[in-house]
Design a protein around this nucleic acid. Structure first.
Lengths: 132, 132
DNA sequence: GTAATCTCCGTACATGGGTACGGAGTCAAG
DNA sequence: CTTGACTCCGTACCCATGTACGGAGATTAC
């Protein structure tokens, strides 16, 4: 599907605002497309996929700098050249998971404690945050 | 321990910056203390514990608005509110973990693929993020 | 053909969570 | 008593990630 998109159509298709797309151009995350007629930017479905990628990666806790790095991992000669970068990303992801698992366990314990014995004057969750 | 603390001592004891404490005053997270002599604020250990509470809650994914809410809820009947808030955070954290685990696996697979063979083509994680 | 909508551009503003600045007053060590 | 460190205050600024504004020109729908 080689649909030609104006910026508004692209924004709608990708689920972002028009201004966000312009912002991504300014930030170098999305290349400026051709402007054949009238100076209006003309996008392709690849641009839509690129924006979806950015948004997906963002929900995983990558910031836009990270995303720029991930986007450079793509391309034909990724293997030996960017292998180290990929490993580094893997390490970052693992650390994020560890941190989140610790948070999850702490929250889970607090919630369970709260459910078992919430009879006394103060909430166990508050108590656990207050101690030390 | 009735130690009287100046703002600098409190900041050090609580592991934050002086400006952060003033910021918490402005934000209503920490009440203004007495100023008996010379106009300098005089803090107690309770203030230190309150700041530790804020910082600990932040690491669990609560933002300062959440924390303000938590600080107001210290009563038996309010425990359910706290509980619900914690449960909601727990849910968000679990979702983030699931997403990151998927990414970790994809990255791991990509790295292994890179190491096994000098393959070309687009990176699997890009593909997995881009799908749809 | 006219009106509504879209796009262009640069720039300014928004938000969360702080940080930094600067001049004046105060406290504590030597 | 002097010197240096601390505190006061208001205000401005920082970063990341967008959002909004506003006037001029292009396109599309009826």
């Amino acid at each position: 599907m080689k649909s030609r998109l104006t910026i508004g159509k692209l924004a709608e298709a990708a689920g972002v605002g028009v201004e966000t797309i312009r912002f991504y151009h300014r930030s170098g995350l999305l290349p400026e497309p051709e402007r054949p007629l009238s100076g209006y930017r003309e996008y392709t479905d690849g641009d839509r996929r690129r924006i979806r990628f950015i948004k997906r990666a963002q929900t995983l806790g990558f910031n836009l700098d990270d995303v720029a790095g991930l986007l450079k991992l793509d391309g034909p000669q990724m293997c030996s050249v960017t292998h180290d970068l990929a490993l580094e990303k893997l390490h970052v992801v693992k650390e994020k998971i560890d941190a989140l698992v610790a948070i999850r366990d702490a929250l889970q314990q607090m919630v369970r404690q709260c459910e078992r014995k919430h009879t006394r004057g103060t909430c166990p969750i508050i108590q656990s945050l207050v101690q030390e």
